[in-house]
Each structure stands twice: as structure tokens, then as C-alpha cells.
């Protein structure tokens, strides 16, 4: 069993992982960070999106050992203590979530979209969320949340 060392939400951890341990399983079961959700088995839904060295990935389509040495960001690391990230605040303000299951992946993706393109427009947001399925909201409030979140992130 290989041992890997990763920085998760800024904290370094070293753990042994099995060859077939997915990054999502590692995060949920070994790190007990259960905010990262698994909604499918074919890597379509995007509920498990985390950042790997700053880029969003579906953690169910990456092996934990592939992440050795990497920086991992999960939903739990987004808030600053009790103060939610502006994107999290925007999702709440716009009712951009209902059941909350797709939400962590959706928010992680939204933050990354805005970081890559601070002036992203509605079309860009809709296409940027192509890899994240929400079954509750019809997406409109998510789009509006991302717009507001982007504005807040621009400062």
C-alpha cells in the first residue's frame, strides 16, 4: 500500500491508500471530509468535484495515489472559519440549492470558474457548469448566485 502526502485545505496529511482507492473515497472515508459527495458511478454528475492543484476534477475519476504531493481543496476548506466564502454566501442569498447534494461540487466549480474568468457572463457560467448536474433547482438561481459570487470575489 503506497503512502501519500497531500495538502488538504492547507493542512498536510500522510496516509496509506490502496491501489483502487479513489480520491473521493480517500477524502470521504480516510479524511472524514464528507462534504464531497458521490452521486454516480460513471463520472457524470459532478457532485464529487474538488480542486487538485487549483484545478477542478471529479474526485471519483482520480486515484488517491495520483494526488501524491498535490494540493487538494474541498468544500470544507472554502469558508474562513465561521465566515462563508462569498460564493457560498451568494448561493444562500439566491436560493441556489435545495437538497444540497450537488452543492459542494457546484460551489467548488463556481469558484474555479470565476477565478479563471472574473468577468464570466451568463452563457459562460451555463457552459462552465456543464459537468455538474442539479436535479432540484432548474439552475437559474445557481446562475444568479455565481454572478453575485463573482461580483463579490472581484471585490
Amino acid at each position: 500500500m503506497p503512502a501519500i502526502t497531500v495538502r488538504v485545505n492547507g493542512l498536510e496529511v500522510t496516509k496509506e491508500v490502496g491501489a483502487r482507492t479513489l480520491l473521493s473515497t480517500f477524502i470521504r472515508e480516510q479524511l472524514k471530509l464528507t462534504g464531497t459527495h458521490v452521486g454516480c458511478d460513471t463520472s457524470q454528475c459532478g457532485a464529487c468535484v474538488v480542486t487538485l492543484d487549483g484545478k477542478t476534477v471529479k474526485s471519483c475519476a482520480v486515484f488517491a495515489w495520483e494526488a501524491d504531493g498535490a494540493d487538494i481543496g474541498t468544500i470544507e476548506g472554502l469558508a474562513d472559519g465561521d465566515k462563508m466564502h462569498p460564493m457560498q454566501e451568494a448561493f444562500r442569498e439566491h436560493h441556489g440549492l435545495q437538497c444540497g447534494f450537488c452543492t459542494p461540487g457546484m460551489v467548488m466549480t463556481a469558484v474555479s470558474l470565476v477565478e479563471n474568468n472574473p468577468d464570466i457572463d451568463e452563457d459562460g457560467i451555463r457552459h462552465g457548469l456543464e459537468g455538474n448536474i442539479c436535479r432540484c433547482t432548474g439552475y437559474q438561481n445557481i446562475i444568479d448566485a455565481v454572478k453575485t459570487g463573482a461580483k463579490a470575489m472581484r471585490g
Partner: peptide, 19 residues
């Protein structure tokens, strides 16, 4: 009224069945 449950869901602290 903004939702009470949202903070839990948005920060990754919801508790679903697999949790």
C-alpha cells in the same frame, strides 16, 4: 426568509445517508 439549512449544506456539513 433565507434558508436555515443552507449553511450546513454549503459548508459540506450536511449529513446524508452515506455519511
Amino acid at each position: 426568509q433565507r434558508r436555515v439549512e443552507d449553511v450546513r449544506f454549503l459548508t459540506g456539513h450536511g449529513k446524508y445517508i452515506d455519511d
